[in-house]
Amino acid sequence: MIKAEQKPFEEILEYLAPYNKILLSGCGACVTVCHAGGEKEGALLASALRMARQKTGKPLEILESTPARQCEPEFAQELSDTIGRVQAVLSVSCGVGVQTLARHFPATQIFPGVNTLFMGETVEHGVWEERCQACGDCILEKTAGICPIARCAKQLLNGPCGGSANGKCEIKRETDCAWQLIYDRSKSLGQLHRLTEIIPAKQWGVQSRDSGPRRIVREDLKV
């Protein structure tokens, strides 16, 4: 799922400075799971903002709402009444949710409350790590289910590089070398021969972003 973390507090305070009544909108999906923008974290941020503003003598009224998923139009619509009563919205959902609200409420300022970081997995409770960069051209079948794009510092398609030492990355010594992991897992699966195959350079053009956002269209699903 998408992983995010809260933006620096001062940054949020700064762009909320002109307002005295806002909506803090959380999201019940990914950001709840990674403890960045669910109902609990949203309420904490709201409480902190209220107190910080109170201290400066310019109180801020905050309404709170946490739709199940901000990235769906119907959920965004649910907020319309509330949004009508505030001057701006602080969205602690991922960047997608922020934009969904922006699209549906053209007249309202929508501010992001979190930095959306990556798509990742829970390594242990409270620790999340990036696993996919959405390159749009998956090669995990060749790399024993470990993605070098997301996990190798150099995004090497044919690794490891010369800097890999004792299974660790040369850029950051505590990080596992992705290609060491790929090698070890291939070996235990009896698939080492796959690594003799050179993975050709990626066709980045296929899923290029130079013509705007990538897009999936399922004609059969359209209504």
Partner: peptide
Amino acid sequence: KCAVCYTCVRLCPHAAIGVERYGDRNVY
């Protein structure tokens, strides 16, 4: 309201919580 994040399951010191299937698929 549950986001099935497993926080409670992992943290319950009495192993009293599990993730179970409920009758209706409609989350809401």
